[in-house]
Amino acid sequence: MAYLLSEHAERFDRSFLAAGEQKLADIILAALPDSVTPLRLTKIGVIGAIVAAAALVGCRWSPTWLPVFVAGIFLNWLGMALDGPLARRRNVTCRQLELIGQTNDLITQVLLIVMFGASPFLSFQSTLVILTCYLLFSAYNYVRTIALHARPMSYIGLGPTEFRILMATWPFVARAGGIDATAHDAAARLDTAFLILAAIGVAGLAVKAFSDARQIAAEE
Results as ranks from 00 to 15, higher is better:
197 L>F: 13
64 T>M: 08
41 L>N: 02
160 P>F: 12
45 G>C: 09
68 V>W: 05
131 L>D: 03
180 D>S: 13
54 A>K: 03
55 A>K: 04
217 A>D: 14
199 A>N: 03
66 L>I: 12
41 L>K: 01
54 A>I: 14
203 A>I: 14
56 L>D: 02
161 T>F: 14
181 A>I: 10
204 G>N: 05
121 F>Q: 01
38 P>F: 13
111 L>V: 05
189 R>W: 11
216 I>S: 01
98 E>I: 11
77 W>I: 06
98 E>H: 15
142 Y>N: 04
48 G>R: 06
177 G>Y: 13
53 A>N: 03
146 I>A: 07
96 Q>C: 10
161 T>L: 13
133 C>N: 07
137 F>L: 15
129 V>K: 03
46 V>P: 00
112 L>Q: 05
61 W>H: 08
63 P>D: 12
5 L>N: 06
115 M>D: 02
145 T>V: 13
218 A>H: 11
35 S>G: 04
131 L>Y: 10
110 V>N: 00
174 A>Y: 10
189 R>I: 05
16 F>E: 01
34 D>Y: 12
29 L>K: 08
179 I>A: 01
56 L>W: 10
3 Y>A: 05
116 F>N: 01
138 S>H: 07
185 D>Y: 08
193 A>Y: 13
162 E>N: 06
189 R>T: 07
167 M>W: 01
36 V>P: 15
151 R>P: 03
124 F>A: 09
54 A>F: 11
134 Y>N: 07
58 G>W: 10
141 N>V: 04
7 E>I: 05
173 V>C: 06
53 A>M: 07
17 L>P: 00
177 G>T: 12
136 L>T: 15
94 C>N: 15
194 F>R: 00
130 I>A: 01
219 E>R: 14
125 Q>T: 15
145 T>F: 04
3 Y>K: 08
40 R>W: 15
205 L>H: 04
20 G>R: 12
46 V>H: 00
195 L>K: 11
175 R>N: 06
155 Y>T: 05
27 I>M: 10
116 F>G: 00
210 F>W: 14
188 A>N: 04
172 F>D: 01
12 F>C: 07
202 V>T: 07
173 V>W: 13
111 L>N: 01
109 Q>W: 05
204 G>C: 09
5 L>T: 09
4 L>Y: 14
145 T>A: 15
121 F>S: 00
74 F>C: 12
205 L>G: 06
116 F>D: 00
69 F>K: 00
15 S>K: 02
86 L>W: 11
196 I>G: 00
119 S>T: 10
77 W>D: 00
196 I>C: 02
